[in-house]
Design a binder for these strands. Structure first.
Length: 593
RNA sequence: GCCUGAGUAGCUCAGUCGGUAGAGCAACUCUCUUGUAAAGAGUAGGUCGUGAGUUCGAAUCCCACCUCAGGCUCCA
């Protein structure tokens, strides 16, 4: 759920008031069974956090009852009135609620006025407002889900119960919102991943460890081909590194003290501890350090689709978006300070090229910087270097006319990063990839190059992964394309549908011809109606169906139908082959017609 | 990891008050040989997530665990 924004629009007021009505309804139904903690409006609704008293519990089964009570309060059209009161009065009013008392103290510390909002005579809440004036102004609302949430968002605090809901200015808008959620569910990559046989999980293998089915394997191969082609043009070299390594490597890189909790526990072999790698960086550093380098050889770009393992907490795993084993489109670029801007921009350009390939139009580059408080804890303790590298990255983005937003206290421990936020067709936000500058770790690995004066210098390192991990990328692409991949990525590109068994031989001839052109093709030779075969192929989102009956076999032509229902009519086979091959090589995101 | 739910055939789901399970699709066999989004008949398929308990009897009730979903926390 997104953070509340501070705009005090009418919609925000409706939602905030709906939250008060929810709390009031709860008090009517479950008096003295809970302590209200807080409840704001958010970008898409509102929520209420409360602490249940004793063994009181609310579940989604209680929603109809609560909603009915809310509707009653709205129908009663109670006035919602703001009052300013003194600290003493407020403390009396909320003396039995530690959450409100804590809040009162923080208002006092900030020297702000204390305001309460009353709904009718029976409900009062400590609240800065604003609100609607009467409960009837809440025209449409719905409770959505129950969740747990830590007080102040801190896992050391008590877990409260949270009820999410939403409210709108009209019933139609609420309907539209709920419909959008339903549509989003249809495009969910977990649903499509199962239907299209892309990947699955197995209990005997483990949580967050996806198994890629043949269709998923094809997509992975295609993405790697794309990465190789693109990286080859930009001077990258490909390397391969092992999945496990001795503890000392991660002690040297500095990862272990920061990230031990997110790593699979080590295995003991011959007195050494070996870890599964959670990232590829130190391995690439070792490769860079394998021989001396001249400034003439820089930048050196080492690329690898490296498989990493991270022990994410079980509750954090989601489909392909958050996993424990991942194949990363990784590369590390070692360059001089003078080369930084161009090298960094080349990486940004690669991102933009990929966005174009996939038709990703909405994205945000987010510059994540350090925080003073985190120095020496979350971040390498060298403020000057932080400021310097952050300036370098910021200038680079500005000079390249790249739009970006800046967020403090989100950097990697070794340097600032650019997170690329992208949005699926249904508006879901993902961090696709991060692009990081590392000013600290090369020194720990004694990485160096010899400059034009013959002196040793430490290179800068850029970590980049524009195609993210296969897991997250394919999860995103499934939702982005709603499973209807562009032809070049489609597991099956052409389905041949013979109308009767009489055309089987002709179908095999076409299949052979397409296979010779490296087109992924299948014949549906089942004893079914053509209509049913079309339906199945469309369900599998196969871009093209070649339908052959007696007429086509006789004239040695084909009839082509696209998955979107468009008919390309009767065309010669070689015509179709050259068109589809063009489409595949140009990675077109649209179909022929 | 934490909070709230859920788990029945390969998939989507039904199963009343506790009386040991049903449908559609898919698979397989047979029939049909079809002109642009579902032909017909039959066969097979389940330790009801796992384990333990209450009971004469458990898919159903209790407990523990596993997995999934929505959140929280986290995300190199």
């Amino acid at each position: 759920m997104s953070q509340q924004n501070n705009q005090n629009s009418e919609l925000q007021n409706i939602r905030h008031s709906a939250e008060h009505v929810l709390t009031q309804a709860m008090q009517r139904l479950f008096p003295n069974k809970f302590l209200m903690a807080m409840g704001p409006a958010t970008d898409d609704g509102f929520y209420l956090d409360f602490e249940p008293i004793g063994d009181f519990k609310v579940s989604e089964n209680d929603f109809p009852q609560i909603e009915a009570e809310m509707a009653k309060i709205i129908k009663e059209n109670l006035p919602i009135i703001k009052e300013e009161i003194s600290l003493e009065d407020a403390k009396k009013l909320f003396s039995d609620n530690p959450y409100k008392m804590e809040w009162l103290n923080s208002i006092k510390d900030r020297g702000e006025a204390i305001t309460i909002y009353k709904t009718g005579d029976e409900f009062t809440d400590l609240c800065a407002g604003p609100h609607v004036r009467y409960t009837k102004q809440i025209k449409a609302f719905k409770l959505l889900s129950i969740a747990g949430a830590y007080w102040h968002g801190d896992e050391k605090n008590k877990m409260l119960t949270r009820i999410y809901g939403t409210a709108f200015e009209s019933k139609e808008e609420l309907e539209k919102y709920l419909n959008n959620i339903e549509e989003a569910k249809k495009r969910d990559h977990r649903k499509l991943g199962k239907e299209l046989e892309i990947y699955f999980y197995d209990d005997e293998i483990g949580q967050g460890l996806p198994l890629w089915l043949p269709n998923g394997g094809i997509i992975i191969e295609e993405l790697e081909k794309l990465a190789k082609e693109t990286e080859d043009k930009d001077g990258y070299s490909r390397v391969k590194t092992p999945h496990i390594t001795k503890e000392s490597l991660f002690l040297k890189s500095g990862h272990l003290p920061y990230y031990a909790e997110s790593m699979y526990p080590p295995m003991e072999i011959d007195g050494d501890k070996y870890y599964l790698k959670p990232m590829n960086c130190p391995f690439h550093h070792k490769i860079y350090g394998n021989k001396p380098h001249s400034y003439r050889d820089l930048p050196i770009k080492l690329a690898e689709y490296g498989t990493c393992y991270r022990y994410e907490k079980s509750g954090e795993l989601i489909g392909l978006m958050r996993v424990r084993s991942m194949q990363m489109n990784d590369a590390h670029i070692y360059c001089t300070e003078g080369q930084f801007e161009k090298t960094f921009m080349d990486v940004i350009k690669m991102y933009l090229y990929y966005f174009q390939v996939f038709g990703i139009e909405k994205y945000v580059m987010r510059l994540s910087t350090h925080s003073k408080e985190g120095l020496g804890k979350k971040y390498i303790d060298n403020e000057q270097l932080w400021i310097k590298t952050e300036d370098m990255v910021r200038n680079c983005l500005k000079n390249g006319n790249i739009n970006f937003v800046e967020v403090a206290d989100e950097a990697a421990f070794y340097g600032p990063k650019i997170d690329v936020q992208i949005y699926s067709a249904i508006g879901r936000e993902f961090t696709l990839a991060t692009n990081q500058v590392d000013f600290a770790v090369p020194e720990r690995f004694s990485l160096e190059y010899t400059d034009e004066k013959g002196e040793k210098q430490i290179p800068l390192c850029i970590h980049r992964a524009p195609l993210s991990t296969h897991e997250r990328m394919i999860g995103f692409l499934l939702e982005h394309f709603a499973g209807a991949f562009p032809t070049w990525l489609s597991p099956t590109q052409v389905k041949i549908i013979p109308i009767t068994d009489g055309q089987l031989e002709y179908a095999q001839k076409i299949e052979k011809e397409l296979k010779e052109n490296n087109i992924r093709v299948e014949i549906d030779s089942k004893s079914e109606t053509m209509q049913n075969k079309i339906r199945n192929a469309a369900g599998e989102k196969v871009p093209y169906m070649i339908i052959v009956g007696g007429r086509e076999a006789e004239n040695q032509t084909i009839s082509v139908r696209q998955r979107d229902g468009q008919d390309l009519g009767i065309i010669p086979l070689n015509d179709f082959v050259s068109k589809i091959k063009d489409q595949i090589t140009s990675k077109s995101i649209t179909l022929i017609k």
